[in-house]
């Protein structure tokens, strides 16, 4: 790494050195060991590992629940952001603060709380049980946990866009005689979409890898409620490091692809945010 231009500000060597050293020890070497470990295995072995029915079904469960949860969050996140930015009502600040709860509350705590709530004996689970709907220990339960985990991502992505949205746009359209719903769908909505997509992507990425809140509520029945992190964990408990590592690698690639797509959307998004000024 070479500086292309000398700077008068001191500390380049020291800070870059520390940065690279810590980055290598904490991130690069451990991540590389994952690749090194899988490199020992042949392609056939890898394919055989990840095409096992149980593994494939765990991927399906993971993707489906993460997708559904993120979709719910995309809708609810936009609604929440809209309500928090555009309206004023009692206890608004408190609700705004509560949005951040999933970031602050340990996932395991969220997991056991949601499990207890949605179990047949729980407050919410009991209500639904009357109609024969089970939440805990089903894919619905997993989705609930993932909705909890993912909601702040969408709200926090959409909020700043709505705040920056020039009210003059809406007013101008209003003056021109456009109806409220027309203003929303033609003017506001297109501005929100990229932000909501970013939030969706971030939530989806997080949900794919989520473990703590899901492990309790899922019930971990193979083929039904076993998600990818759970299957990695169970392979590890059986000391099958090869399988665990292979599945982990595929998972990692999936999250990187998600991140990459999110970045693409985000770059566009930032341009819009900055362009307004």
């Amino acid at each position: 790494m070479k500086r292309t231009n000398r700077s008068v500000i001191p500390g380049f060597g020291l800070t870059t050195g520390i940065t690279l050293a810590i980055l290598s020890i904490v991130v690069l070497i451990p991540l590389a060991s994952l690749v090194v470990f899988t490199a020992h295995m042949s392609l056939d072995e890898i394919v055989a590992t990840i095409t096992r029915d149980r593994v494939l079904s765990s991927f399906r469960v993971s993707f489906v629940t993460a997708f559904v949860a993120s979709l719910i969050n995309a809708v609810m996140g936009v609604v929440l952001a809209w309500v928090l930015v555009k309206y004023s009502f009692p206890l608004k600040r408190l609700i705004d603060g509560m949005i951040e709860l999933p970031f602050a509350l340990p996932t395991a705590v969220a997991g056991i709380a949601l499990t207890t709530l949605t179990a047949d004996t729980g407050l919410v689970g009991g209500f639904f049980a009357k109609f024969g709907v089970k939440i805990a220990f089903t894919q619905a339960g997993i989705t609930v946990a993932l909705v909890f985990i993912g909601i702040p991502f969408v709200v926090r992505a959409v909020q700043p866009v709505l705040e920056k949205l020039d009210p003059a746009y809406e007013e101008a359209a209003g003056v021109l005689g456009a109806s409220r719903s027309r203003i929303f769908w033609k003017i506001v909505f297109p501005e929100i979409v990229p932000a909501a997509l970013t939030g969706f992507g971030l939530a989806f990425g997080r949900c794919l890898g989520e473990y703590g809140s899901v492990v309790f509520i899922a019930g971990n029945k193979p083929f039904e409620t076993e998600i990818v992190p759970l299957i990695i964990m169970s392979e590890l408990q059986e000391y099958d490091y090869a399988s665990a590592t292979t599945i982990a690698l595929v998972m990692l690639v999936a999250s990187f692809v998600t991140l990459f797509l999110v970045n693409l959307i985000q770059t566009r998004n930032t341009r819009i945010l900055k362009g307004g000024a």
Partner: peptide, 25 residues
């Protein structure tokens, strides 16, 4: 933020990497 050097973009990406990795991994 104080210096320009080659590989800066890659470094920024690498720093952000861990948040996308599942805790289990």
């Amino acid at each position: 933020t104080k210096f320009h050097f080659r590989g800066k973009k890659i470094l920024t990406t690498l720093i952000d990497l861990p948040v996308t990795v599942s805790p289990i991994i």
